[in-house]
Amino acid sequence: MSRQTVQSKAFIIVLGLITLAFLTILLPFWSSIFWACVMTLLFYPLQRRLRKKFNGRDTLAALATLLAGVFLVVIPVTMIAFAFVSEGAQLYELIENQEIEPDQLLERIGSAVPIIPDVLDRLDIDMSNVRSYLSDSAVSLSRQLSQEALSFGRNTVSFTVGLVLMLYLTFFLLRDGDKMMGWLSTAVPLENDRRQLLFSKFTEVVRATVKGNLVVAMVQGALGGLIFWLLGITAPVLWAVVMAFLSLVPAVGAALVWVPVAIYLFATGEVVQGSILVAYGAIIIGLADNVLRPILVGRDTKLPDYVVLFSTLGGISLLGINGFVIGPLIAALFISFWATFSQDLNR
């Protein structure tokens, strides 16, 4: 083995170790880094337009783009997060003080919709056990939300630091994004054509996946929370967040929340409110996904519903709230890169 070969291999090993050490140092801040990249990808088209208007002044364009992101995304999401944990704590207090009794709600629904107890009887399911299970589950879930609210309050400082770091990095990614991508493309050991194809596909998939999942989920959650608030339903922001998450479930999605609520409204004699909720949910909330997703994602990069479902649930189970985006993103990149590899292989 020649001396030059030994030196090359030694350099690669040292390079790998240094890279691993650097990534380990960044590990406590990976969430801030990830969301900074997401913000950059979402608002980079705006940055390019503003750069032209500001005659190529990258710093001014990046600052204006960052301010737009803060007002359009960061402030609303932060307010929703605080309202979510606050309403979760209030819901727990209502259940704990027996102002809301889940077992009685189920009994009312069963009385108004006799088919439900009949079906349970045919399946040999004891209605009293179902009421007890739902009551215990509601108390447990609301208690967990209350604990999360306390934890969120204690971690306000770390949340603020992470938010500041995210915005700080987003500014530099917006300003120097082209230079970074140019350096990164030259560092990837691939042919120029394949490198350009993979980078363009990567950018396309990331933007489509992030926009398709986040924007559609936020819109459906906002629409659901709005109608819940107008109808005077308890904790509308909390249910809006739940509907946003469930919007990723194929075929049903947010209906897993508003349909039982509509049934309860009918069961308690609120026929007008129940009818409004059914019509609004079926027409407005239901069509939001079918209208927005093709516009934001496009047909070429749209993932199958079952892939979105499993990748999202897997991402959340492994990575928490960040997996809501990372799971489908990894799935989209997996499919795109394998499709590119197959095309190259069959040429």
Rank of each mutant, 00 (worst) to 15 (best):
G212R: 01
P250A: 07
I233V: 09
M79S: 09
S32N: 07
G320Y: 07
V272I: 12
L238P: 01
V278S: 04
I115P: 03
F245W: 13
I263M: 07
E96A: 12
D178H: 06
L15E: 15
K179L: 12
L50I: 12
L333T: 07
F341G: 09
P189S: 10
F199P: 01
V241Q: 00
R154H: 11
K179Q: 07
Q144W: 14
V206S: 11
L15M: 15
G327W: 01
R51C: 13
L94M: 10
Q104T: 07
F266E: 03
S185C: 11
K53V: 11
L345A: 12
E107V: 03
R57N: 15
V38N: 01
K211W: 11
M243I: 07
V77A: 14
A138F: 10
L265Q: 04
V272F: 02
G88T: 00
F43K: 02
G314I: 00
D289N: 12
F71P: 00
V291A: 11
L277M: 02
I12W: 15
L318C: 06
A10H: 11
L42Y: 11
S132K: 14
A339M: 12
S137M: 13
L163Q: 03
V14H: 07
G153W: 08
T78E: 13
S2G: 14
N55Q: 05
P250W: 09
F266D: 03
F29I: 04
V278H: 07
S8G: 08
T156K: 10
L169S: 09
T19R: 05
S135C: 01
L226D: 05
Y280A: 06
L163D: 04
I25G: 06
D103A: 15
F172Q: 05
N129M: 14
V325W: 00
E101V: 15
S137Y: 15
I100P: 06
D118T: 14
V278G: 06
R131H: 09
Q144A: 15
F11Y: 15
L46F: 07
R48P: 01
S247A: 13
G232L: 02
P189G: 11
Q90S: 13
V85K: 00
I80G: 00
V139L: 12
A332G: 13
L292I: 04
A36L: 01
N213S: 15
W258A: 06
F43I: 02
W258M: 00
L134S: 12
V157T: 13
A222W: 02
L231A: 02
E107Y: 03
A332F: 09
A21D: 02
P236Y: 02
L165F: 00
V249G: 06
R131F: 06
I321F: 13
T209Q: 07
R143L: 13
D178Y: 02
T340S: 08
T24R: 13
T170V: 05
V164F: 05
L319I: 09
Q343W: 04
G16Y: 10
